[in-house]
Simulated assay, not measured.
Amino acid sequence: MKKVLIIGPIGDIGGRELETGFIAKTLSSVASVKILSTGNMTHNSQIFNFVSDKQIINLKKHLYNSNLFFKVLAILSSLKSKIK
């Protein structure tokens, strides 16, 4: 089975989410489809009407969870913002 990766700034509501959902649902019958979102996406996104959450990867969450450096940097940034 072929693998397809769709990359884009997918958010919550709008045309990109609907188009990506249509394309992913159509291609999922002939290929394994994954979607990589470079934007801010929540669980209220319209794309979840078309595909399961197991097919979607959020870049920011993935980097935060997989790299200790980014996690520490985010915590330090948060602490600095709260001090001001």
Results as ranks from 00 to 15, higher is better:
His43Tyr: 14
Val4Ser: 00
Phe50Cys: 03
Gln55Cys: 10
Lys25His: 12
Ser78Met: 15
Phe70His: 12
Glu17Trp: 03
Ser28Ala: 04
Lys2Asp: 12
Ile10Tyr: 09
Lys3Tyr: 03
Ser45Gln: 00
Ala74Cys: 10
Ile13Gln: 03
Phe69Thr: 07
Leu18Gln: 15
Ile7Leu: 11
Asn65Trp: 04
Leu79Thr: 07
Val4Cys: 00
Thr20Tyr: 08
Lys84Gly: 07
Leu27Ile: 07
Val51Gly: 03
Asp12His: 01
Ile23Asp: 13
Asn49Met: 05
Gln55Lys: 09
Ile75Met: 11
Gln55Gly: 02
Met1Glu: 15
Asp53Arg: 08
Gly15Val: 06
Val30Ala: 13
Ser78Gln: 13
Ser32Ile: 12
Leu36Pro: 01
Phe70Asn: 04
Pro9Asp: 09
Ser45Lys: 03
Ser81Asn: 14
Thr38Trp: 00
Lys84Tyr: 14
Ser32His: 15
Val4Leu: 10
Lys34Phe: 10
Leu63Lys: 09
Val72Lys: 09
Lys61Phe: 03
Leu63Tyr: 02
Ile47Thr: 01
Leu59Thr: 00
Ile7Val: 09
Ala74His: 11
His62Glu: 08
Ser78Lys: 14
Val4Ala: 08
Lys61Pro: 05
Asn44Gly: 14
Ile35Asn: 07
Leu27Met: 08
Glu19Cys: 14
Phe70Ala: 00
Lys25Gln: 11
Ser28Gln: 05
Gly11Cys: 13
Asp53Thr: 08
Asn67Lys: 13
Arg16Ser: 14
Ser37Met: 02
Val4Glu: 01
Ser32Trp: 12
Val72Gln: 04
Val33Trp: 00
Lys2His: 06
Gln46Glu: 11
Ile47Val: 00
Tyr64Glu: 14
Met1Ser: 11
Ile35Met: 03
Leu27Arg: 02
Tyr64Met: 09
Leu59Asn: 08
Ser37Trp: 02
Asn65Met: 06
Asn44Asp: 12
Lys82Phe: 10
Val33Asp: 04
